[in-house]
Design a protein around this nucleic acid. Structure first.
Lengths: 250, 250
DNA sequence: ATGATAATTTTTGTCAGACAAAATGGAGGA
DNA sequence: TCCTCCATTTTGTCTGACAAAAATTATCAT
């Protein structure tokens, strides 16, 4: 029986908070492995000797923490590892409330993407390369359709990040990227820069394949740098806050 | 009266989720500015035409999102912007559950820190530089005390990141740094590398002061690179997962 | 009047019990 | 075996209640 160890009633540690902590602990310690299913609210309530409403509040906490989720259509809670989706959500609010601009996100991308390319050049598996090659082929086929290019571009960068095998790196990238790419895409669409994008992607891919970290890095740098130039050319405000859609200058 | 616009009862959007969304919206739109205080649960309940328990669940969601917080000792909820503390919390669970290693975090730092140094070289204000100079002076005085060095090192990097004026960059750095520095510090303590650290900090500071982005960057690169070398010298496992404390090799 | 203290009113945390709608798990039929 | 229908949980919400903690207000000594 794993009741709450602290029956005290401090304000800082209300029952629902303690329960959430306890469950988080069990997840982090591998006691409740990712993928496992939580008991129903009722059994949790009796296990912790609290009422259902209290467990519910604890569950809301863990849910927003990204530790548990209710599967689509399903009715039971499963333990999950928070992904870029959950982290991104929180970052998004943080960034918006701090009036973060596209330029600022771009600086982050300028730091992270080239590193992803470098690491991927060393670590990418044959399978990773296959996936990227496939993405390239589809990009080639869609080079005239801005909407598809956009999607494929996002996928490309995700794949490169994934190929690093570094979850910290790819998580960091994905979260910022999710906020950044809408703007990137707008630029690309406006400029119809599909072929330039494709060239960069192809060069990066070749470098990865050749395990040439330096080339992978410099092509990625160039590719990300295109965004800034693109903003100029497309007459978009590089320094607009991300709260709204990127604005036209003047 | 801003009742919920959707009285429907889909599973995907339960009342408490809608209310949380609505409130989040109001915060992001500046309707509920950061710092303002929320009405009590009862008024919220009547405003949204739901019961108190439902509002409570919505509040738990927003609380964990980092958007509202109850001030120390106070009893009312205030709107806040999520900071690195809240984001870091979530990243921490994500990283731990993905068996992220110190090496992986180090790769992220290797990408971000030099960028911070570069940007700071351009953007640091006189005040920023003063703060860093002060930090340097204190570091100099504490060069023999590993514990203090550790604290001052964290502060130094925070200050450089803050000096970029880029909240996205500093938030990204701070969150990862919070997880990374404990290990960094362990290494530094073991090696008693205070003077080497001080030299790097000083060189970085000089570069910032001289607005020399290239130097700032390369010194920061070297400084971060020291961690890897330090792990070797201190015989610590660079590839240990961050879930526990960094382990000794063998 | 003023600052400190006591009394009163809100608000919060928690509980119990209730109910409709949705999901789950079987039993039985095609 | 696969699918449909029904009994059984489980979930989302609501109402009402109560003690403890905060916030207010009233009260009193200076």
């Amino acid at each position: 029986m794993d009741q709450l160890s602290t029956p005290t009633r401090d304000r800082s540690s209300s029952a629902f908070r303690l329960i959430a902590q306890e469950l988080e602990q069990q997840v982090l310690s591998g006691d409740l492995p990712v993928g496992s299913i939580l008991p129903g609210e009722l059994s949790l309530a009796s296990r912790f000797n609290v009422s259902r409403s209290t467990v519910r509040e604890a569950i809301r906490l863990l849910e927003q923490l990204g530790l548990i989720r209710r599967e689509e259509g399903r009715n039971k809670l499963t333990v999950t590892a928070p992904g870029h989706k959950e982290i991104g959500e929180r970052m998004r609010t943080a960034f918006i409330l701090r009036d973060t601009t596209f330029e600022q996100l771009w600086e982050v991308m300028t730091a992270i993407e080239p590193m992803c390319a470098m690491v991927a050049a060393h670590k990418a598996s044959a399978h990773d390369l296959d996936l990227i090659a496939d993405n390239l082929a589809r990009t080639e086929a869609a080079v005239k359709s801005p909407a598809k290019i956009v999607e494929l571009d996002i996928e490309f960068h995700n794949l490169v990040a994934a190929a690093t095998g570094n979850s910290a790196l790819s998580l960091s990238r994905d979260t910022v990227g999710e906020l950044f790419y809408p703007a990137f895409n707008l630029v690309m669409t406006r400029l119809n820069a599909g072929s330039r994008l494709l060239l960069a992607h192809r060069k990066i891919f070749e470098a990865l394949q050749a395990r040439n970290a330096a080339d992978a890095r410099s092509w990625m740098e160039r590719h990300i740098g295109d965004f800034q130039r693109g903003c100029d050319l497309a007459n978009l405000d590089f320094r607009a806050p991300i709260s709204g859609p990127i604005m036209e200058l003047e």
